[in-house]
């Protein structure tokens, strides 16, 4: 497959735009000096990913990504940023001094994963797309074949809920403890 063939496909133009958006915003997520900006760039990267999923005819996952990530998780992040009073000014040291080893590690991982993908899959095509995966199929599969992982995940969520509450709850000070005991008696 030549480059010309690749460009000739209209979906690839869509891919290229989305990929560019994702790559740039992901880069900004890890380089931005402003925490709020980083979180908002993550929104952009996730939105691009959702677009990719639509391109791959995975509508349900795409909308779940939008709803859960962009709708809920990012809001949670913004709250986290506010509560921890993360430094938001432009001149704050948000990164470590030594970035080279980290960049090297990241580059190594990129080489390894991308290299293995290239050698393993060459120019395999994704074809027969466009009919879309109906939510009905996903729902059926989720509650039939994957019902046990589904239950496990629900349990994980419950555990996370309880864990989050327990961790974030403010412990009563000794004075308050005594006051409460006094009222009981």
């Amino acid at each position: 497959m030549t480059v010309a063939d690749w460009i000739a496909e209209p979906t690839n133009w869509v891919y290229l735009v989305l990929a560019l958006v994702i790559a740039v915003s992901a880069l900004r997520v890890v380089t931005s000096t402003n925490v709020v900006h980083a979180a908002l760039f993550l929104v952009l990267a996730l939105a691009g990913t959702a677009g990719l999923f639509l391109l791959l005819s995975a509508e349900f996952v795409a909308w779940v990504l939008v709803l859960v990530y962009i709708g809920a998780v990012i809001v949670l992040f913004l709250f986290g940023i506010m509560i921890t009073r993360a430094p938001t000014g432009p001149n704050v040291e948000v990164d470590h001094q030594r970035r080279a080893p980290a960049a090297m590690a990241a580059f190594l991982i990129f080489i390894v994963t991308a290299g293995s993908a290239l050698t393993a899959f060459g120019d395999k095509q994704i074809s027969n797309l466009g009919r879309g995966t109906s939510t009905e199929v996903i729902g059926e599969q989720l509650l039939q074949r994957f019902v046990i992982p589904f239950e496990v995940v629900s349990f994980v969520l419950l555990a996370a809920l309880i864990g989050g509450i327990t961790l974030a709850r403010k412990d009563a000070t000794p004075a308050e403890e005594m006051a409460r005991e006094g009222s009981d008696a």
């Binding site: 497959m1 690749w6 496909e9 979906t11 690839n12 891919y15 990929a19 994702i22 790559a23 992901a26 880069l27 997520v29 890890v30 990267a45 990719l52 391109l55 791959l56 470590h96 080893p101 980290a102 960049a103 590690a105 990241a106 580059f107 991982i109 990129f110 994963t113 991308a114 993908a117 290239l118 899959f121 060459g122 120019d123 395999k124 095509q125 994704i126 797309l129």
Partner: peptide, 22 residues
């Protein structure tokens, strides 16, 4: 569409994530 164009984008996202993590 090639399968690899998605895989390599995934690899890029992953290594950017690692960079940020470190």
């Amino acid at each position: 569409m090639l399968l690899n164009q998605f895989l390599i984008l995934g690899a890029l996202l992953f290594s950017l994530g690692i960079y940020g993590l470190l």
